[in-house]
């Protein structure tokens, strides 16, 4: 019995040392990771709706947050930027979307995905992003569902996930803005 207690104790020491080292490294890297993510999102927002200052806003029940883009020179509202999320073939796909005040898509960019290289991963191409520009909620369906977005793969999993998540998020944004009385 003593022997097994000793074995358990030795293993425990190894685990404790490992956990301690990991906690230290985590303390070093965690701020870098979150900083880099924030920087990336800020830069993407500025690409989607250029020449704007962004203020963080959220819906009344604070379940959904988005950014309001205010023009740097004129001070008028240029539109809104938000992130939509959908489940693709093999990953969660996060898309940053910029819309104007009439809720027409200005530009989009995929910020996080791990779809099949060569197939779903083609959603990162500029040509794919360009398909979305100028579309409003009613057009944001894939062509198989009667919309204006051409599928990039035969199975349409990725394209549908991105398109539907954007459309749903625009609807949520509209609701949030009407409820907040800010148009």
């Amino acid at each position: 019995m003593m022997y097994y207690a000793k074995l358990g104790f030795i293993l425990l020491i190894f685990c404790a040392v490992a956990a301690g080292i990991l906690a230290y490294v985590n303390g070093l890297t965690a701020p870098v990771i979150s900083q880099r993510k924030e920087l990336e999102e800020t830069q993407t927002r500025q690409q989607l709706i250029p020449n704007s200052d962004f203020t963080l806003m959220s819906s009344a029940d604070s379940s959904f947050s988005f950014y309001k883009a205010i023009d740097k020179s004129s001070g008028t509202t240029n539109g809104y930027a938000f992130i939509s999320e959908g489940t693709g073939y093999s990953s969660r796909i996060k898309t940053m979307v910029g819309v104007d005040t009439l809720f027409q898509v200005l530009a989009i960019k995929i910020i996080d995905q791990a779809e099949t290289p060569g197939l779903g991963a083609k959603c990162q191409d500029q040509a794919y992003f360009d398909m979305y520009a100028g579309l409003s909620e009613t057009d944001l369906f894939v062509d198989k569902d009667g919309g204006k977005i051409k599928s990039i793969t035969g199975a349409t999993i990725t394209t549908r996930a991105v398109t539907n998540s954007i459309r749903e998020q625009i609807a949520i944004l509209k609701k949030a803005l009407i409820a907040g009385g800010d148009k």
């Binding site: 080292i21 990991l22 490294v25 985590n26 890297t29 965690a30 870098v32 990771i33 880099r36």
Partner: peptide, 9 residues
């Protein structure tokens, strides 16, 4: 885990 965190950063 260390290389995982380092690469993420």
């Amino acid at each position: 885990t260390i290389i995982d965190m380092a690469m993420a950063a």
